[in-house]
Design a protein around this nucleic acid. Sequence first.
DNA 1: CGAGCGATTGATCATAATCAAGCGATGTGG
DNA 2: CCACATCGCTTGATTATGATCAATCGCTCG
Lengths: 254, 254
Amino acid sequence: MATALIKKLEGFVHLSAEERDALTKAASERVRRIRAREDIIREGDSPRDVNLVLEGWACRYKTLEDGRRQIIAFFIPGDMCDLDISMLHEMDHSIGALTALTFAEISRSTIDRLMATYPRIHQALAWQALVSAAVQREWTVNIGQRNATERLAHLFCELFLRLRAVGRTHGDICEMPVTQTELAEATGLTPVHVNRTLQDLRASGLIVLKGRELRIPDLAELQRVSLFHPNYLHLDHEGAQFDANGGEIKPVVE
Amino acid sequence: MATALIKKLEGFVHLSAEERDALTKAASERVRRIRAREDIIREGDSPRDVNLVLEGWACRYKTLEDGRRQIIAFFIPGDMCDLDISMLHEMDHSIGALTALTFAEISRSTIDRLMATYPRIHQALAWQALVSAAVQREWTVNIGQRNATERLAHLFCELFLRLRAVGRTHGDICEMPVTQTELAEATGLTPVHVNRTLQDLRASGLIVLKGRELRIPDLAELQRVSLFHPNYLHLDHEGAQFDANGGEIKPVVE
DNA sequence: CGAGCGATTGATCATAATCAAGCGATGTGG
DNA sequence: CCACATCGCTTGATTATGATCAATCGCTCG
């Protein structure tokens, strides 16, 4: 089921029933399940299919030869790993599961057919690729300029909004199935320092984090302390002009 | 003149004379010059044309409301700023000149026509977009995991190789027309610390940096100390199968 | 029950930030 | 042509954020 992807894309453009079906079908072709900590693909491998996360979380990461690891991106349900990386001969990073993971392997040809047949899907996927790039840029800012508290708070804001965009929040609660070590790897901090910073955030009432669940009692306040601005997520239905429900359809521009 | 761009793209695929002409023509349509520190476009603006750097350096950056600035990317001659960002309604970052800058404004329609007419150009530009994304990822790793010495050394390695790919090196020398403050903004360090770290790098003979010129006496050694691996730049003529000089031409896959 | 993992705590250390001042080159206006 | 302002670089002293090292605790699972 590609409900998360469809929900996310519909935040950009309304899809027709046919288009939704086509996406669902593509995402059902080949469904794989792996356990937490297994890799989907590793640095040095040659890229194969496009992977769509259906259930669970994954991450993109790079490892330095002395073992330091940086998580470069989190993938939540509805996220596609590298729509077009197949043009490169060799992966320059790895993708691994953070939790038990269900994902769809979608072949290059299926994606191509999908995009050729349904210009709106092409548009929507291209838009998602742009948003992913914007997220990557914001991570650079986050690690480069924000202190530990801001970094973690900012990451929580981002993940909460992204989860909400795929219908994975319940009120002010979302899942947060990552270890403190993984948060550390994503933010460029040490696990010990993440632990202490989380305690600060909890003590100030900004987050309620327990087990694999995060509650954000006051999102606006958490955004304020982390200097978070959601503009880079481009969540505001920008593709309305391409709607399935009327509105002109601009030529697909890539 | 789009020689830098052409040189760079030809590191990926050989272009025909006609294709080179088409690129040169597109890059001559509208040439603009601005002074150092002026912006090409600012966060909040709506994206317009594609900008191609012809001469000088520029950067992509984001500013936090309290004034902290992170440089997210450097643009050197031959670099295009956001091939396809026009799909977004609003810039989530700014692009500014680091030096006196000459750049070509290429309209969306010209780019589209170029890519539609010349599949190899489409391929090559798409490849460049992927490389830019890979560079962005590596910056995340750089800032997140490397210490000050490694970060600066790594940045120098990257810039040197990118400059070499556009024919802008002379032996082991390249231009480096950025201030220490800008290096600080790019690496997430303070200017003071950049200054001291540069002194260390100079003292250990790894770099000779003076004025706006950088010499790297032993690139392999600089790569070693910065844990630099050039794989993410994908410089290895990966698009040979799309060559103008024989070789099958695969369908454009975007 | 023991192993292993993730979270937590304490103590200490180090890298890098901050604050403040000075230097040298460049450029400009009186 | 000199005085002065500016900018980028450099230096010193001090501070602080976050890293490191090491150990413990609680929980789950085989």
